[in-house]
């Protein structure tokens, strides 16, 4: 009985310390997250809702037909945020490859080719993929304020039978 009580006390200390440290550090950390995230894809791209979160709902375009209308108007640059290997296999017709992991290496060349006043739509592999949002945030920080995110990305575009290459 004494041994059992001792173990309960020890377990409480370890769990208690973990709870206190976890919630305190999360509160003060710049990477801290909300207690409840947004994990329903019906609401948009999934996110833990971190303090510095790149996922911004206002930038999201949820309707693929709206994206097709923008595509047909031919005034917007489509940027593929997926890894280059996937882009090479197939992508939205005319889209430019720009994986966010290579942002630092490629932003200078991008700035030479495109004016910050252009309209941009980023996309990746759907609502469980955050790369399109990460890239949109980086582009907006670089001055491309007219950047939005097509959240259903390449899989739905292809499924709808829209132009790919």
């Amino acid at each position: 009985m004494e041994k059992r009580n001792k173990m309960i006390k020890e377990l409480s200390v370890i769990v208690g310390l973990s709870v206190m440290a976890g919630f305190s550090i999360n509160y003060f950390s710049p990477n801290g997250i909300s207690y409840i995230g947004s994990w329903d894809t019906a609401s948009g791209v999934i996110t833990a809702k971190a303090k510095n979160d790149a996922v911004v709902r206002e930038r999201e375009i949820m309707d693929v037909k709206t994206v097709k209308q923008i595509f047909d108007a031919d005034k917007t640059v489509f940027i593929d945020a997926r890894p280059y290997k996937e882009y090479e296999e197939s992508h939205i017709k005319g889209a430019v490859s720009f994986p966010p992991a290579q942002f630092d290496e490629r932003i200078e060349a991008f700035l030479l080719n495109y004016s910050p006043s252009i309209s941009i739509i980023t996309y990746c592999s759907g609502r469980e993929c955050r790369d399109s949002h990460e890239l949109a945030q980086m582009l907006i920080d670089s001055g491309f304020s007219e950047t939005r995110v097509f959240i259903d990305g390449y899989p739905l575009w292809e499924k709808e039978g829209y132009p790919v290459e």
Partner: peptide
Amino acid sequence: SELINITAIFLPFLELFS
């Protein structure tokens, strides 16, 4: 989904202290 963030906040510290 209600437990995902709480787990992500608490579990790493349980690993650390253990």
